[in-house]
């Protein structure tokens, strides 16, 4: 009986495991996502740099309608600094981070209204990957593509409507996208694997080479960038990490206070539990 039960349990577990989704951190096209350096979440200098980048580059098309400017005091800025360095229009420090762009216009210009970024860090999270990793990889995934409407394309989000706003900070790059694809022969209907290497040079001109593979390979995609200015690209990576830290802060501004309070709540409850256990034991001594 026990053997049978064990057998049943093991087979169910194996079935369930087989059906579980592959835990793979991948973006839209299956491309590997880089890990955002999470230590920046609590680094005030990083958060402030992120806020500066956000106000200068993002907060023109994208709004953050649910976020008030003076909430930036939580990341160590005072009202004077917020007013002088982060508010460019006639908004007041107690106003929300709104933009003047009309959503209908932007839809016409970009084909899509740029989404509000107030809770974007959470909105882009899924069971497969964290929103912060996604944003970190997305903003660093741009390459020149002369064939696209904006002149830009993205390895994480192919045919993205948003151009590479931060391109000057990154400098020109060349990208090599190496894919293993399954192609079907039109006459024989036989599927075979092909290695396709796309190279986009710094001006976005594409060169493709395709080599048939013998044998069966899983579909895959590998991306490698070659920056013209390696130092600028490194600095850019760091800036994007800061920007993502800011977006992450904005998605749930009370998070750090929450964790800080939470630890004390749990410490208190642990003591209380000991007390309650002792009280319980004392009363129950009567019961024979």
């Amino acid at each position: 009986m026990k053997k049978l039960t064990a057998y049943v349990v093991v087979s169910i577990a194996m079935l369930v495991a087989a059906a579980a989704p592959n835990a793979r951190a991948s973006g839209g096209e299956g491309v590997h996502l880089d890990h955002w350096p999470a230590a920046r979440a609590n680094d005030l200098a990083a958060l402030q740099n992120g806020a500066r980048l956000f106000a200068n580059y993002c907060l023109n098309c994208h709004s953050a309608n649910l976020m008030r400017f003076n909430r930036l005091q939580d990341i160590g800025l005072d009202e004077r600094q917020i007013k002088d360095f982060l508010i460019f229009g006639n908004l007041k420090v107690g106003d929300m981070m709104t933009v003047a762009m009309n959503p209908k216009d932007s839809k016409q210009w970009f084909g899509k209204t740029p989404p509000d970024l107030s809770v974007i860090g959470r909105a882009r999270t899924s069971f497969e990957y964290k929103g912060t990793d996604y944003l970190y990889s997305l903003l660093r995934g741009y390459y020149r593509d002369a064939g696209s409407a904006t002149g830009w394309n993205n390895v994480v989000y192919p045919s993205i409507a948003m151009p590479h706003i931060l391109w000057e900070r990154q400098g020109p790059r060349e990208v090599t996208i190496e894919r293993v694809l399954h192609v079907e022969d039109e006459t024989t209907k036989k599927s075979s694997s092909v290695r396709e290497v796309q190279v986009f040079d710094a001006a976005g001109v594409q060169a493709v080479t395709r080599t048939p593979l013998t044998g069966h390979f899983d579909e895959s995609i590998e991306v490698s960038f070659k920056p013209a200015d390696a130092a600028a690209a490194r600095q850019f990576d760091s800036d994007v990490a800061d920007l993502v830290a800011y977006l992450n802060f904005m998605t749930d501004p009370s998070a750090s206070a929450r964790v800080r309070i939470g630890v004390w709540v749990l410490v208190f409850l642990s003591f209380f539990t000991v007390l309650a256990w002792w009280l319980n034991r004392t009363f129950w001594k009567d019961i024979k």
């Binding site: 539990t273 309650a276 009280l279 319980n280 009363f283 129950w284």
Partner: peptide, 10 residues
């Protein structure tokens, strides 16, 4: 009640 307070705490 004391028993439940203990478990409530947990």
């Amino acid at each position: 009640t004391v028993h439940d307070i203990y478990w409530l705490s947990l």
